[in-house]
Simulated assay, not measured.
Amino acid sequence: MVSARTAVFVVFALNGCALGSWAPRVPAMSTQVGAVPGSLGLALLGASVGLLVAATITGRLVERLGARLVMALSTVAAALMLAALGLATSVLWLGLTLFALGAAIGVLDVAMNVGAVFVEREAGKPLMASFHAGFSFGALAGALFAGLAASNGWSPSRQFTLAALAAILVLLTVVRALPGIKPTHRPTEKRSAVAPIKRPVLWLLATIALCSAIAEGASADWSALLLVSEHGIGEGPAALAYAAFSLAMAIARLTGGALQAKVGERPVLAGGALLAATGLLAAALISSPVIGFVGFALAGAGLAASFPVALGLAGEAGKRADGGGGEREIAFVTSVAYTGFLAGPPAIGGIAQLTSLSTSFIVVALVAALIAPATVAALRAGRRERERSYC
């Protein structure tokens, strides 16, 4: 019998696999549709818009339908859109398909994080980072498969179709164990009834997730192109840059819960931000394939805790006395974070068009460094909110 914890971990992995499967094939897709960096950035914007639009409505959707059903349906939808992505023959087609894929993944992101919060509360210990490790392992598997496919001359269509079929088959093995059936209650506590947009702590947590999303999205979408155009290596080996990023992130996330319980959120988030900024700067400034791979690995390890810890704290901020709650808070933080995916691709593409990809990644490194002060401010705001609620 598959446990709820294992089932949620698998769904996180499937989500990561979707990203890891197509992100390293951006160079091939760019050639397939005849895009230049600027138009490619606009096409990638489609996925970001889909993510953002879907995330804004998913909190209430999960409240009404339950996390299990939403996770299952959105996983199938994402798999189908991944298969359709490989058929794109124009920049417009690519952008529209990425919008649909982004929307499916956006719904899945919120639902699976709500499911993860349910499991974490039941276990009574930090588990959020380990679930996100599942995402990273999935992204790693997808990136490795993408690298293998690229090296053997497979078309994106062939690769994406096989990945989609595998995802649906894996989902069928765990769907019954997923937590979060349709709720039978509604939030009643005053604290839960406060709109997320009116809570400073959620804005600050969203800032942490936003900066992480920009840096992570840049590494996913542009790392291969950076190594191809600025470091002079082939498409197949370049695809492994995101694999290095994902592997380092996955390992860091597996140990993140224990580290968080031992030293607290502040050292984990602030220290990780500085590590990520250092790695991205190294990849951007030093023209060496080895340094490029190491830099993206450092970035993956440094960013590992940012998104999961921010979402975990958001879910805790919405917790009710009955043990439920947090759907709207997680959806709010996720929605703001996805503006990073929205603004990141065209911004990086635009900067690269005017200067170079190296300059773009210097900007991304500075964004990653902003996670440190945002962490300090968020923890202080959360402490003040808890003190007021007990008065």
Rank of each mutant, 00 (worst) to 15 (best):
A4S: 15
R5S: 13
V11P: 00
G20K: 12
S21V: 05
A23V: 14
R25D: 01
R25Y: 02
S30F: 01
T31F: 03
Q32C: 06
G34P: 09
V36A: 12
V36T: 12
S39N: 13
L42I: 12
A43H: 06
L45G: 15
A55K: 01
T56P: 00
V62G: 10
E63L: 05
L69K: 13
V70K: 10
V70L: 12
L73W: 13
S74D: 00
L80Q: 01
M81S: 15
A84Q: 03
L85K: 03
L85E: 03
L85S: 09
S90Y: 10
S90H: 11
V91T: 11
V91L: 03
L96R: 11
T97N: 14
A100F: 13
A100L: 14
I105R: 03
G106N: 04
G106F: 02
V114G: 07
V114W: 06
A116E: 03
E122G: 06
S130M: 10
F131G: 08
S136I: 11
A139E: 02
G153L: 00
R158D: 07
Q159N: 10
L162H: 05
I168A: 04
L171G: 06
L172Q: 12
T173A: 12
L178H: 06
G180S: 14
P183L: 09
H185Y: 10
H185M: 08
R186C: 03
R186Q: 14
E189C: 04
E189N: 07
S192H: 14
A193G: 05
V194G: 03
P200Y: 03
P200E: 00
P200N: 05
L204C: 03
L205C: 07
A209K: 12
C211W: 07
I214Y: 00
G217C: 12
G217K: 09
W222I: 12
A224C: 08
L225G: 07
S229K: 15
G232Y: 08
G232H: 11
G236Q: 04
A241W: 05
F245L: 05
S246F: 02
L247N: 02
A248C: 14
A258M: 10
A258W: 10
Q260V: 06
K262W: 13
K262Q: 11
E265P: 06
R266G: 00
P267S: 05
A270H: 07
A277I: 05
L280C: 05
L280K: 09
S287V: 14
S288D: 15
S288M: 02
G295C: 02
A299P: 14
A301P: 01
A301R: 01
G302P: 07
G302W: 11
L303W: 11
S306L: 04
F307I: 13
L311N: 04
L311E: 03
L313E: 08
E316Y: 04
E316K: 14
A317V: 09
R320F: 00
A321S: 15
D322M: 05
G324E: 14
G325H: 04
G325L: 08
R328H: 10
E329K: 05
E329W: 00
T334Q: 06
F341D: 01
F341P: 01
A343N: 02
A352P: 09
Q353L: 13
L357N: 05
V367I: 15
A368N: 12
A368H: 11
A369L: 13
V376I: 13
V376H: 09
V376W: 12
A381R: 04
E385I: 06
R386E: 08
S389E: 13
